[in-house]
Design a protein around this nucleic acid. Sequence first.
DNA 1: ATAGGGTTAG
Length: 644
Amino acid sequence: MITAASCSSSLLPSLQSLPGFLFKSRTFFYFHQIQNPQRFCKLFTQKRFHNALLSPQSSVQFPSHPNPDILLSYLISAVSSCSSISYCRAIHSCVIKSFNYTDGFIGDQLVSCYTRLGRADDARNLFDEMPNKDLISWNSLISGFSRRGYVDKCLDAFFRMKFEMGIETNEVTLISITSACASRGAVDEGKYIHGFALKLGVLWEVKLVNSLINLYGKSGYLDAVCRLVETMPVGNIVSWNLMIASHAQNGTAADGVGYFNLMRRAGMNPDDGTVLSLLEACENLGLQKLAEGVHGLITKCGLYANATVATGLLDLYAKLGRLNYSLKVFGEVNNPDKVAWTAMLAGNAVHGNGREAMELFEGMVKVGVEPDHVTFTHLLSACSHSGLVKEGKNYFDIMSQVYGIEPRLDHYSCMVDLLGRSGLLNDAYELVKRMPLKPNSAVWGALFGACRVYGNIELGKEVAERLFSLDPSDSRNYIMLSNMYSAAGLWRDASKVRALMKEKGLIRNPGCSFIEHGNKIHRFAVGDRSHPESEKIYTKLEEVIGKIRGAGFVSKTEFILHDVEQAVKEDMISKHSEKLAIAFGLLVTNAGMPIIITKNLRICGDCHSTAKLISFIEKRTIIIRDSKRFHHFAAGICSCGDYW
DNA sequence: ATAGGGTTAG
């Protein structure tokens, strides 16, 4: 029998250093389970104690407690929250050796532990050995699968319990399955469960209704969401939040904001879920004013201290082009975690601040926050966006060597972009050829971008073929290839590509630019005259372009797809949506203010040059977010260094 | 103060 005394001889020093230590009582377990599960588990698996527990000679009991089951159960929940498979295994064998059974709730907990860790097979083996499986056992198994998003395994277990074992499911079972369906976009499976819920009559359960709202909202079935809400006998704050989020995610973010106003009128107090849904709506509407409003709401509701909310807010500001606001929010986060650090790093990456991103990386490491694969994706992207080739290569190496993170597709596409940018096309191609994963369109796209910039037609053609076979219906690939040919003066090849596009019925996605003014987003397309201020905008644009021409600048008409007269080309290119938005911005904003524009596609090369010159001549900062990154134009220079 | 469930940031 292990007693407190015998254990303490080996462990006492470390245990006593912990606050709240009371080895004899369950307080010890409880305290550590909730305060520091990691530490708690480490103590338990420390070799000597562990061996003692597992030693066959000592008929092991958990330390002087009348009910070892309780202690063990605490321990397993701690293991669960540590997501460590070795702890899970250690406790499992400990259970077998000490108690010689894994049935009942201990078995349930272990099953749930294994499934949450993604060890479906281990869970299944253990589960199959359990002689007395009840509803809760099955629910534990299903909820574990659900957390990992294993829809098929959830359904399989569902059928087995229901039809083979004859155990009746309850609302908990259905909630687990629907939430898995929602996370994987498995609408049909979700609908099936919905039908089941109707038959079972469990739609009184608000959590089930909410998981269904989430399922339909995430899958774009807004009608189904509304029908569900109309017939719903119950509803709570989560239902409202999901309504807002459903609209924010499906292109009707303004309606989402409308639901927020309704919710307030219904007397509901917003919580973290509400403001997170609103932040999503802001991102889709692209309205600075609204974001500031949500910021105010966050402060008013005391949600600023919530790390998830603060991180969402700083991320939003970065996406709206206000990196200085992001930085301010970040500065106010207490002990930022790895997600907050990474969000700040990512913001700098997309704005082309490579050095700042590197400093953030070093900063987080210094304070002991462990970077993960997402951190490295953004760090590498920062290096590539800022032309930090040497640094990027180094980070790519230490990622696996020091941090044990195996590179994923995102990391490879960043590296290909990084190498390609510095003209190392062969190195980039070699990397693609020898990478252990199957390159996706992001990887090939990065290589193609390098071919385009460096005019490597031969390789470009080859890469384009790969892109066509990966995404035959993606019109962007055809346009990129056609542009590459046009830029090289290979008009016939360019028109062949366009003909091919036409043959396949692919339509070019029209470019448009957006700018916020007076609580509204103003949208411009090429040659657009629909804006009420159109006359003034064109006059302003002519005036500015006149100044630029006067300074000797010639249009980069190679960015025009069509083989037409130079004068026509110049006319077309001078009415690009980016330029119209800039002219509008110059008209409506004060002299000292930056002009912030969003473009749905990548920025056109001529517009890029023009924006640089306008920033110089008009002494204005122009910030353009295109589909890939932010361009900061100031004093005639762009933050992207003319590679994008 | 032992087991299962809805929304959540990079």
